[in-house]
């Protein structure tokens, strides 16, 4: 059996009286690609933030490769070799594409190696023509792509992506799908996503969140045809 790389046990996050994440038990295996879906307010992003250290859970534990990382700061989680992309593009606007990616690479490699890897990623993501352009001047899809570049340049073993396809054109989404498939060759991936089309095209196992809890966890086809899921997530019409 493949090694479990990410695990949460009884993960709970309360905001005052609101329980945004309620006793979530989650397991992710080596090189697995998992999508988290659910209606707005289902607790996907809260779960994501608890795992990445952006929030400290009220209860429960997060384990990465068996190590208890509950309450760690985001930079400590990232230092384990975890690549994280947040919901809204988090990039350095006044810096060039090259500098953005180089900064990510520099965290783990010396300057020369970082430069070489930056060049590789720029080629891999076809960012060559805009490599010297500042992020602030780029279109949304390009910014998303650069942020993915920041994530993959360090060869992470676990990649956590919050809505990577949000607000992107069909062409951009296709490219994103390709890149994600590429990442799964060496890393485990968790994707929080709304776009069902996108999920169908990449996912195998899907975890459905509803009211802070895990409603169901199964193969994407079975999830899509499940009555309960359709009711809570897709609405009655679907």
């Amino acid at each position: 059996m493949a090694e479990t790389v990410l695990e949460t046990s009884g993960l709970t996050m309360r905001f005052g009286g609101v329980v945004a994440s309620d006793n979530v038990n989650f397991k992710l295996k080596h090189r697995e690609l998992r999508c988290l879906i659910g209606p707005n307010g289902a607790g996907k992003s809260t779960f994501f933030k608890c795992v990445t250290g952006l929030l400290t859970p009220s209860d429960g534990h997060v384990f990465m490769r068996g190590q208890d990382v509950t309450g760690w700061m985001p930079h400590q989680v990232a230092s384990l070799g975890v690549g994280i992309k947040t919901q809204t593009p988090n990039v350095m606007d006044a810096l060039s594409v090259h500098e953005n990616i180089w900064l990510a690479a520099r965290r783990f490699f010396d300057p020369a190696e970082a430069r070489a890897r930056t060049g590789d990623v720029i080629d891999r993501l076809s960012l060559g023509p805009i490599a010297r352009t500042d992020l602030g001047q780029l279109a949304h899809g390009e910014r998303q792509r650069v942020e993915l570049g920041l994530v993959i340049v360090t060869d992470p073993w676990l990649v956590l992506l919050d809505e990577p396809a949000a607000g992107m054109s069909a062409e951009d989404v296709d490219r994103m799908t390709e890149i994600i498939h590429d990442i799964t060759r060496s890393a485990s991936v968790v994707i929080v996503e709304h776009d069902m089309q996108f999920i169908r095209s990449i996912a195998e196992t899907v975890t459905v969140f509803h009211q802070g809890r895990v409603l169901m966890e199964d193969h994407v086809d079975r999830v899509m045809t499940d009555e309960t899921v359709r009711r809570v997530y897709l609405g009655k019409k679907a």
Binding site: T52, L54, M73, P74, H75, A78, S79, I84, T86, N90, V91, M92, D93, A94, L95, E99, N100, W102, L103, A104, R106, R107, F108, L150, T154
Partner: peptide, 19 residues
């Protein structure tokens, strides 16, 4: 260069792994 990165986006620099 990292300091300038932090000026531009603290969250991102933390998520990259910088203290």
């Amino acid at each position: 260069r990292i300091a300038i990165g932090i000026r531009e986006n603290e969250t991102r620099m933390a998520l990259i792994g910088y203290d």
